[in-house]
Design a binder for these strands. Structure first.
Lengths: 225, 225
DNA sequence: ACGTCCGTTCAGCGCAGGTTCAGGACCCGT
DNA sequence: ACGGGTCCTGAACCTGCGCTGAACGGACGT
């Protein structure tokens, strides 16, 4: 059984590596999101242990990216938080299970085996908000029965908004999720893309899915406007 | 175990850093609220030691901001005062524990470990006071079934009042929490915003959620008026 | 080489919403 | 009754946010 461990806490990663090898698994380790993503792409694993908070690209995006690329290797997400939201979030991204830090090692092994046994997910998740639908794996979007063609940036921005539907997300959050954690350009780019999305999703249908909350950010209405 | 220490007293911060590292922890240090907030956002810690009184942004707002952004890293608040208000205030903000200066180092370590072990807090539900409801994540407010649209300032002021429902809060406290702890403008701004809130929340419903306690401050009635 | 598509930057504009201010109402002590 | 202080009120002012259209430049295909 081949396992990839992605965690930036070296000591934890190291002890996981040793522990899992003691369980008879073949373990690869990556210490940040970029490496993790790269290794997951290049190799075939039976499961991936993925920390949510990572330097470079966070676990959330690593998982989402893999899924969007059609890679359905089982993912066990590690998270330092235990809020209900994070659970939903993790699963919505395409993680198959999650574990809250701190966790006991035997539990991790059990969950990991279960997730790997269950095999890769059969069905990709489709995000919905009213009559707005978005399929991350197929990279397709619909408003009702009409398919909407979006560019790459537009798509990942809408995906992010839909994962947070109903909640206000700040411009900063959007930048970190859709662009990069250390994006240093003009934040106005977010406004520009909101505009693009509105032109494609709202204007032709006389709807208002994306609301702007002045001084706070944007909110995708959970009923699609 | 990764810990972030935010304290502007360099000597104390330094000795905490050394002491905690001697306990086997990985310690990062920030000397003001702005840096602290930034580091808490950028990294993942098992716990944060946060001084209440800070230059830049005070500890109260650092914690509140993190929570509003969905960051539930355990926070141990340090305060130089030992007044009842500060305890309530600290915990209401989303701090998990507090410690009054001066404190003994072993006690700090013990509390810190306890707070980290207990893990991050659960995400709070919406704030309620009678038929007044406020959802920090969605940035929405209702009186009964009617949704009330508030501006950014109005919203954060009402959020503050609701976190302290039933308690009298002074104008000074409001200024420090909603504006800045070094706000130097006309304190009358608080009265102006109380007025705005009353116009939106009370007047149309013939209610009186926000009471003024002459010479002391304001109180949000815990039953919404 | 050229055209097209996308991502990004930029400057101008309109206005929501924040802040200030002055006058009036009210409360309280003397 | 009077005066001082606190709070309320309405309006005016003005900053900065978000919106918009256009232009630039790189990647890519033809």
């Amino acid at each position: 059984m081949r396992v990839l461990v992605v965690d930036d806490e070296r000591r934890l990663a190291r002890s996981l590596e040793l522990g899992l090898e003691a369980e008879g698994m073949a373990v690869d380790v990556a210490h940040d999101g970029t490496d993790g993503l790269w290794m997951a792409r290049e190799n075939t694993y039976d499961a991936i242990v993925l920390d949510l908070m990572l330097p470079g690209i966070n676990g959330y995006r690593v998982c989402a990216t893999l899924r969007e690329e059609g890679n359905w290797t089982p993912v066990l997400m590690l998270t330092a938080k235990d809020g209900e939201w994070d659970q939903v979030e993790g699963l919505d991204t395409g993680a198959d299970d999650y574990l809250t830090k701190p966790f006991s090692f035997p539990v991790l092994v059990a969950r990991l085996r279960a997730v790997a046994r269950r095999g890769a997910r059969e069905r990709p998740t489709v995000l919905e908000a009213g009559d707005l639908r978005l399929d991350p794996a197929a990279r397709r979007t619909w408003r009702g029965d009409d398919e909407i063609t979006l560019t790459s940036r537009e798509f990942s921005m809408l995906a992010f908004l839909m994962r947070h539907k109903g909640d206000v997300v700040s411009k900063r959050q959007v930048l970190e999720a859709v662009w990069d954690d250390d994006f240093e350009g003009d934040p106005n780019i977010v406004e520009v893309y909101v505009r693009h999305l509105r032109n494609k999703l709202d204007r032709p249908y006389d709807r208002a899915a994306i609301q702007t909350i002045r001084g706070a950010g944007y909110r995708l209405s959970s009923d699609g406007g």
